[in-house]
Design a protein around this nucleic acid. Structure first.
Lengths: 239, 239
DNA sequence: AAGTGGTCTAGACCACCTT
DNA sequence: AGGTGGTCTAGACCACTTG
């Protein structure tokens, strides 16, 4: 009888972990050039495709850098890369076992103000729906939002009843974006927002800005403000 | 002569964009079940592999949800998903054209305090190096950091000169993590940090917490504080 | 139990970049 | 100009989970 080894098929995650282990062990050091995919494949006894996948995973977490013809290098200046999930505000509140309500403070058609145009990177003003709303959890202020919706991209929003629909929710369900940009920072509560949030003027608020596009068309830009105690969480990609 | 069409090979990005377009057009609505990969492949005239890749891209951005045997569904409760890159602080400062310095305030071996154990999800206390440091840009306070480094995982750190090495930088270069968790929020400057940051007690600060692991072993936990004007940026995966 | 997505192989060609 | 990663095909088997 032939002593056929069961030919242990190598999973791409195993390959990834092997490479990672070699980096941790110092076999591949910061800035080093790694062997070609094909060579690693030959060494490990799997296909180049499998190595390719493992390498891509490492590249996507910022551990290595790949360039055609240049090969794969261990990144000399690594970055911390994480993935961030922001749910619909209503569901976020409900998940905490609290009651969700929201209140529309303002809904007005306007020309896009300069700061919104700047965020969208557009030069000509566009017609937008300007909304101001307050999200509440158990009747307590949860998030204040100041939103602009592009009326060219989303004409339907003019016919909606905002006391029933949260813009947050309607947009995310009906106008899937293909690109989003987020910004976080700490700010002192401005005089026009502090009373709505039930905090003193100058109190610390988390400032969240979100801009979304569908292709090259602006969808919406939101400035949100959340009080102390509100957290944004992120994790490394499970990969 | 036969009128052979050049057999236009379909890129996975094209497939992805087609599916996305169908969702935008309302052909696939929120909650709908999409055709099987194989059927879409047959319809478009490409391999199942290609469709698989496109679908995975959509799933990774949270647009659809895939489950074996269950098929692929348009996600009913979409989330906003973005990727976040945090560079080494020194390079972040230099990239702004400012001079980087840092000052070590404290370096002491301690048993892990409860809040650190909680973040790492460990029950038994471990020996850690507790560091407090201030990063400066053009001699102005930039980020305050309060850090614990696990001495079991990183024994080498005891021999390092922290006035030369920033912990931030040394760790990220020599102890690549396999998992990271981040948290952001706004806080009022505590009395023990405010003077270091050159702000009034109670002034708004961005609070950033970061925990990293290598496998299941804790590497480091950092609480950082950044003043108003400091921003964290995130984007949708370029995919 | 069966159907769906998930993965691996083997091979080919392509596109981009460095040398 | 040539070498590297990037992608697609074709086919097979596997693993999970739902009906």
């Amino acid at each position: 009888m032939s002593q056929d080894k069961p030919a242990p098929r190598l999973a791409w995650t195993e390959v990834r972990d092997m490479i990672r282990a070699r980096m941790a062990a110092g076999q591949y050091k910061s800035g080093d050039k790694l062997p070609r995919d094909a060579d690693i494949a030959a060494e490990l006894g799997c296909t180049r495709t499998t190595v390719h996948r493992a390498m891509n995973a490492l590249a996507s977490t910022g551990l290595v850098e790949r360039v055609r013809k240049g090969g794969t290098h261990v990144k000399a200046d690594p970055i911390t890369r994480a993935t961030l999930d922001i749910p619909i505000t209503r569901l976020e509140v409900l998940a905490q076992g609290r009651a969700y309500t929201h209140r529309v403070i303002l809904a007005k058609t306007v020309a896009s103000p300069p700061e919104v145009m700047a965020r969208f990177g557009i030069k000509a003003a566009r017609l937008m729906l300007h909304l101001q709303a307050l999200h509440l959890a158990d009747q307590q202020p949860y998030i204040w939002e100041n939103r602009w919706i592009d009326l060219e991209t989303c004409p339907e929003v003019l016919g909606l009843d905002w006391t029933q629909n949260s813009a947050n929710e309607w947009l995310v369900r009906h106008k899937a974006y293909s690109r989003v940009e987020l910004r976080f920072g700490a700010v002192a509560a401005p005089h026009d927002i502090a009373p709505h949030m039930n905090v003193a003027q100058g109190a610390p608020l988390l400032h969240i800005e979100r801009a979304t596009w569908q292709g090259d068309d602006p969808i919406t830009f939101v400035q949100s403000f959340a009080p102390q105690g509100y957290h944004i969480c992120a994790q490394s990609q499970p990969v």
